[in-house]
Amino acid sequence: MLKNNRFCYFIIIISVILIGILSRNIDGVPTFFGDTLDAVMVYFGVRLLGINNDFIKTAVNALVLCFCIKFLQLYRADWILEILRTTLGHYALGQGFLWSGLVYYTLGVLIFSLMDSSLVNKNSRE
Rank of each mutant, 00 (worst) to 15 (best):
G50V: 10
I111W: 05
F44V: 03
S117N: 10
R76Y: 06
L2G: 14
Y9F: 14
C66R: 06
L63R: 01
T36C: 06
L49M: 15
F97Y: 11
L72A: 13
V103K: 11
A39S: 15
L119R: 09
I80M: 10
K3H: 11
F112M: 15
Y91W: 11
L102T: 04
L84Q: 12
I80Q: 02
R76G: 07
L49W: 07
A39H: 07
S100K: 11
I17V: 11
S23V: 03
V42K: 12
V60R: 03
G28H: 03
G94I: 03
I21K: 09
D54N: 14
G45W: 00
L93I: 07
S117F: 08
M41L: 15
L65I: 09
V46R: 03
F97M: 00
W79G: 05
I69E: 02
V64F: 04
Y9Q: 08
Y105C: 03
S124W: 12
I56L: 15
N53R: 12
S23T: 06
Q95H: 14
R6S: 11
Y9P: 08
L22M: 14
R85Q: 14
F33E: 01
V42T: 13
D35F: 12
T106P: 00
G50N: 13
F71Q: 02
Q73C: 08
L88D: 06
D35N: 15
G108N: 08
L84W: 12
H90Q: 10
I51Y: 11
P30A: 08
D27R: 13
G89A: 03
T36I: 07
G50I: 11
I17S: 12
G108P: 03
W99M: 12
S23I: 04
L93Y: 06
I21D: 07
A59S: 09
P30S: 06
I56K: 14
H90G: 11
L114A: 02
W99G: 10
F10C: 07
T87P: 09
L102A: 13
Q95L: 13
I26K: 07
A77L: 12
F112H: 14
I19K: 13
R85W: 06
D35P: 04
